[in-house]
Write a protein that binds this DNA or RNA. Structure first.
Length: 578
RNA sequence: CGGGGAGUGGCGCAAUUGGCAGCGCACCGGUUUUGGGAACCGGGGGUUGCAGGUUCAAGUCCUGUCUCCCCGACCA
């Protein structure tokens, strides 16, 4: 490719609305353009990288025996009513109506669609297991799209779905996809962690995430040297129940004027945060739930939703609380609260006595409250947001924390969708059964940004070899110089002949401009054809180092060998990673 | 959805009290340059987000509306 013909408009300044280094570089280097919040256009360089990522993913999917298909983006609402997710997924969905006022959604995901497609003709155990996948656009109406391609409203995703006669077969495929994802990460050349994950709105049990490590990542990963790793939403910890041999003290109601937060209560009553119990009021499908958790801990909503199997659970809003309980937020507590509220406790409060809770009245708290005596907790379960420094659930050592960008996730769906949507097959015994399902997503467009987030320097992007739009840039310092031009073109043909993807900078620009562009776009290898040709030499430079190798042009064998070696030794994640 | 900020050539920005819409980059033509974003000369490109209003006169003031960005929307 001649640079003069490439449509890659580079910019000296970043657009003012770019919020992460990755999207800044992708825009400046001419890979993408933003069209609206969370909606992007891929220019030739960006699309070339996308296709390379797609191909790696496609090859690994094909290798598992999965078959590629293409489902529609526009999906009728009735399928979502069947699964119950028209409400559950609700606000996240881009919805539209046709001229007859019928409801549709732009697919945020395709579990409903795939089930609808296969349920008519996948009806015998002899057809199972079946594995299908597609690569296409997804649409999610994010509350606040941001971080470039990481949280966008339109994005490209690979999603695979598998169908099984029994759980054992599902487990086998789950492992198959798990190792395929491992290979994808390795081929992409990114540093990553595979972690246990919460299954969220998708539903089902059993899930792992594949996270590319990067500071800008939105996922928090708790991990341990012993090999345990999980997202913060999923992470467990070694629970040490405290046994206190205190005598039960009589409950006392104290005035705490304008003292609302745990911080305030702790200061005002001169009680450590550990001796205060937060009462968090939530509302789900079954009504109000009051969660008791120790004052110095945070609630993990994902665990709560998962415990109740209700994705609609939300914190009750202040107005609602006022209307229902006639008490302002901040003074909610378990003592004397309406019987229709279910009270459950986090493991952190199990065994605690004589603690402080909200007084169920403006400006009052209770002291020396104990369950069993003053109120009842239905049960204790783990609802805590695990943090750095908590104990590893496997080996008991301190957990560490890193930020990651979630690229892939594998789920065991079980029979959730086949059950609600009547996806059944006839088994050997002649009985009709819902099939077990698995689903496996990979964020293609997000991978583009994740790579840049992980691999860049002050001059621009650094591409892993496997997804670099071109591997080699030939910078002809002065293309008007006949000798330079000739050598540049000869080199270009030779490299292309050897199977490399090459760009030659034939633009009539100053050398500095060309070098800056080459670094910004991030070619793994740059060959400079300049005044050194007078000594019969060209210069080879890796994007990763400042060192240059001068090679005699005449010795084409050595030249090709050096190119090959430099590219072979080019491993940015090793040098820069994290 | 709440609070704050902002919309001016493709990009980044300026415009005093309401008084000729400007600068840098990019783009086009030309001359000289060519090893880390070259210099000079000349040139094109705008309904100042949109719709109304006030005024002799509106980028600037008023009303409405759309979009973008930041913070929050949860830890009582």
């Amino acid at each position: 490719m001649f640079f003069s013909k490439l449509y890659a408009p580079t910019l000296k300044e970043s657009p003012s609305d770019a919020d992460l280094i990755g999207i800044k570089y992708l825009i400046r280097a001419g890979f993408v353009r933003k069209i609206a919040a969370g909606i992007y256009t891929y220019l030739p360089l960006g699309w070339k990288v996308i296709k390379k990522i797609e191909n790696i993913v496609r090859e690994e999917m094909d290798a598992t025996g999965s078959q590629e298909i293409m489902l529609p983006i526009i999906q009728p609402a009735e399928l979502w009513h069947e699964s119950g997710r028209w409400e559950d997924y609700g606000p996240e969905m881009m919805k539209l109506k046709d001229r007859h006022d019928r409801d549709f959604t732009l697919g945020p995901t395709h579990e409903e669609m795939i089930t609808a497609v296969v349920r008519n003709e996948l009806n015998s155990y002899k057809q199972l297991p079946l594995s299908l996948y597609q690569i296409q656009n997804k649409y999610r109406d994010e509350i606040r799209p941001r971080f470039g391609l990481m949280r966008s409203r339109e994005f490209i995703m690979k999603d695979a779905y598998t169908f099984h006669a029994d759980e054992k077969s599902l487990d086998e495929y789950y492992d198959l996809f798990y190792s395929a994802y491992d290979r994808i990460m390795k081929r992409l050349g990114l540093k990553y962690l595979a972690v246990e994950a919460d299954s969220g709105t998708i539903g089902g049990k059993g899930s792992h995430e594949f996270n590319a490590l990067a500071e800008a990542g939105e996922s928090t990963i708790l991990y341990c040297d012993c090999g345990y790793a999980a997202t913060d939403e999923k992470a467990e910890y070694k629970i040490e129940t405290i046994k206190v041999n205190e005598e039960l003290l009589p409950m006392e109601k104290v005035e705490t004027p304008n003292v609302k937060t745990i911080e305030d209560v702790s200061k005002f009553l001169k009680v450590p945060r550990k001796k205060i119990v937060k009462s968090l009021l939530y509302k789900g499908k079954k009504g109000f739930i009051l969660i008791m958790i120790r004052g110095d801990q945070d609630l993990n909503e994902a665990k709560l939703k998962s415990y109740y199997g209700d994705q609609t659970i939300q914190m009750a809003n202040p107005n609602e609380i006022m209307e229902e309980f006639n008490v302002p937020v901040g003074f909610i507590g378990p003592v004397g609260i309406s019987k229709k509220v279910e009270i459950i406790g986090d493991k952190s409060v199990e065994g605690m006595k004589n603690y402080v809770v909200g007084g169920m009245e403006n400006n009052y708290h209770y002291k020396n409250v104990s369950p069993g005596k003053d109120f009842n907790i239905k049960l204790f379960t783990d609802l805590k947001m695990v943090k750095r420094g908590d104990l590893c659930p496997v080996c008991g050592k301190l957990l560490k924390e890193k930020k990651g960008i979630e690229l892939g996730q594998v789920f065991k769906l079980g029979i959730k969708y086949s059950n609600s949507m009547n996806g059944v097959f006839t088994d050997e015994d002649g009985k009709s059964k819902p099939y077990y399902m698995g689903c496996y997503g990979w964020g293609i467009s997000r991978t583009l940004e994740a790579s840049v987030e992980q691999l860049h320097d002050e001059n621009g992007i650094i591409w892993p070899l496997s997804i670099a739009p071109y591997q080699i840039m030939i910078t002809v310092v002065n293309f008007s110089d006949v000798a330079q031009k000739e050598i540049g073109l000869k080199l270009y043909d030779m490299l292309k002949g050897n199977g490399y993807e090459v760009i030659i900078d034939d633009r009539k620009l100053s050398p500095g401009f060309k070098f800056k562009d080459a670094d910004l776009i991030g070619f793994p290898l740059r060959i400079t054809v300049g005044n050194k040709i007078k000594e019969g030499k060209v210069e080879l430079k890796s994007r990763l180092s400042r060192d240059k190798k001068e090679i005699t042009i005449e010795d084409t064998g050595l030249l090709m060998k050096t190119v090959e070696e430099m590219l072979k030794n080019y491993n940015p994640a090793e040098k820069i990673g994290e």
